[in-house]
Design a protein around this nucleic acid. Sequence first.
DNA 1: CGCTCGATGCGAACGATGTACGCAGAGACA
DNA 2: TGTCTCTGCGTACATCGTTCGCATCGAGCG
Lengths: 244, 244
Amino acid sequence: MAAKPTKQSPIPSVWARPRREADQPTLSRATIVREAVVMLDAEGVEALSMRKLATRLNAGAASLYRHVATKDELMELAVDEVAAETHVPPADSPEWRAAAAEAAGSFRATALRHPWLSSVLGQAGLAYLGPNLMSFSERLAALFTSAGFAKPSGPIDTLLSYVIGMSTTEAAWLITVARSGETEADFIARLMPAAQQAAAVHEHLAEGYADAVSATVDPVALRDEKFAYGLDVVLDGLALRLEA
Amino acid sequence: MAAKPTKQSPIPSVWARPRREADQPTLSRATIVREAVVMLDAEGVEALSMRKLATRLNAGAASLYRHVATKDELMELAVDEVAAETHVPPADSPEWRAAAAEAAGSFRATALRHPWLSSVLGQAGLAYLGPNLMSFSERLAALFTSAGFAKPSGPIDTLLSYVIGMSTTEAAWLITVARSGETEADFIARLMPAAQQAAAVHEHLAEGYADAVSATVDPVALRDEKFAYGLDVVLDGLALRLEA
DNA sequence: CGCTCGATGCGAACGATGTACGCAGAGACA
DNA sequence: TGTCTCTGCGTACATCGTTCGCATCGAGCG
């Protein structure tokens, strides 16, 4: 609605009156959250303001508050919205390790697809009660109990902590890269001198950086590998617990 | 300096002129960062504004920008400031597992002491190059290489990811609790009905919540235990890698 | 001793933000 | 036709991060 009415209210005619526009359905919690996610993906967390979001929806800023109590609440809804993208294999799959690995990878993938997610997860208002995150946990619980763990909360928390921690770090890195406007490889190349200088005092770190400089490989593959390594470590540790 | 001069510049007398106050040394990057940490600890991340911080330092808001380029930069400095509180045992300690566990616990402790840390870590501007965080990594690298790992970056990233993930979750929870003004136990009690209802649809989760309700134990001890479990899992996984 | 100069502090202002208030129109049901 | 509820929104307020230009200070130098 509201196809920008002119400043002064004009002739009070039915025809001049703004008509509900059919293309943009109506303002609703769902449309608001969906558009918020689009904006967050496109411009990051600090570019999302209630006013800009409202403008995108052909609405006034105050209108949003009819469907959403507060911006923080909007954020929680946005988190749960993208949580729907995660995928956990069914519990009856024969190999629990592969299933857990796939669930973990799926979480990481959505966290990297929506890098703002990680910044928001650390914020206060717990979105952990949202239906989609809930069902993610539930499916993990099903997976681990069917795998033989007596109490699945231990494995769940361990796996999720690792995945969240790694994804947060990666997402923060990706945001920084994106902000530079360069490709990841170029950004790394430009950052190396400073990093090396900062690491020069620390013998063990300097060694690692020296390696990194020679390896001009695909940075994406490098991150994938790093994630896989830690994931394997965690799953190994869990497997050990399964035999007792 | 500047003990609030009166609005109109009064009689231009030496005695009326504001004098440098000796008790509050001077405005400097160090004092600013230190006070910022105090405010963050006391009132959380959203309560820290440049104006309020300046007022606390008997200064004008604009003055802060002589020592700090931007608020984001201040935050990075604050992160590195508290990173100095972490502790890693010397590399030559006989038992690398105990040493790694102590380092991890130390990180978690400071993350819980400064719950705003986790929210900021997920934010963009990488503070990972700060000197204190650097030396934390360095000491971890020393520890793991001395333990026998060929390339310490794998274990470091794995361990840190787990610790960061778990601490972030815990800190977010603690912030929510603190905001309620209740004790953690009371808050849990008040939250249980809603959580149970939300979990009711999910059979495996409902089970876990049923457990939690009967266990009216110390919530702090429960969190400690949860952290220790996951930490053991990670260290077991790493130990496995050491034998190959 | 007097002058200059760079460093430091800050009042005021700008644009943007999240949100409260109260009115206006629209559809439902009497 | 009249009333009531729901939805949209113009306006306003307090607060925010940050910039600009000026005032002040102390050190160095002639």
